[in-house]
Design a protein around this nucleic acid. Sequence first.
DNA 1: ACCAGCTCCTGCTTGC
DNA 2: TGCAAGCAGGAGCTGG
Length: 283
Amino acid sequence: MPELPEVETVRRGLEPALAGRTLVAVEARRKDLRFPFPDKFAERLTGRTITALTRRAKYLLADLDDGNVLIAHLGMSGSFRVEDSVPGGFHHERSKRAAHDHVVLTTDRGVRVTYNDPRRFGFMLLVPRTELGDHPLLRTLGIEPLGNELSGAYLLSVLTKRATSLKAALLDQKIVAGLGNIYVCEALHRAGLSPKRAAKTLTPARAKALAAAIRAVLEEAVQAGGSSLRDHARTDGELGYFQHAFRVYDRTGQPCPKRGCKGMVRRVVQNGRSTFWCPACQK
DNA sequence: ACCAGCTCCTGCTTGC
DNA sequence: TGCAAGCAGGAGCTGG
């Protein structure tokens, strides 16, 4: 599921359920996801109050009142669902234990938050807040694309140092943190840039267009609640709807939606991952 | 220091 | 219908 817009959608869904709430019960139903859970994971979380729920790139960060931060990454297939209790328990229909429910948090307001992840590429870690910036997973992350640092000048300075393709460079979290396969394809189409173009051939004008395209596509996607393909992004089970706004992603053989363009969307594989693009208008 | 390929895992879709 | 192959929104690790 998750690139930046999906993770941000999850964050917004979790915030009212978790921010300011105390965890009265925590259950980890297996010993690991992608990585082992920290020692005494459930015990360390139980009784803690979550003081803030934020996001960095594709990471969810829950600040705890003991100075630690719960880092959660959804991998490819992770999702959270939030269920309110009713007198006597939880709604029967939705409270069923589902396959791949790995972590269950219960708050002092009787809300249950369940992490589900079939492929188990996601993970949860506990790190002291003071060491967050030094953590190997976060230390090397590039800029937040929805912040003030994203500009043509930034992209130009970073991308022209790379020997690889624009597509591969934009997937690198050290450059722009939070982009994934969908939004890189969409941003490159909007900017009229070929995914196969060598990153170092970027010009100031093209870099400026690319920065604008990245910002626009991410903002629109967040607005739409992210994209829902095989999984859904939202904690309430509703679907995001940005997938209906895709211009190239997963649209092989369909006409290029760009005004006046007579091209057709094609799929190629770059670095082992599908790239969707229009050879007619992306140069 | 890059860079590309491999890998983790399950489930859905596609083609025979 | 069955079955195998291919593919999936991520990213750490390895070897070149």
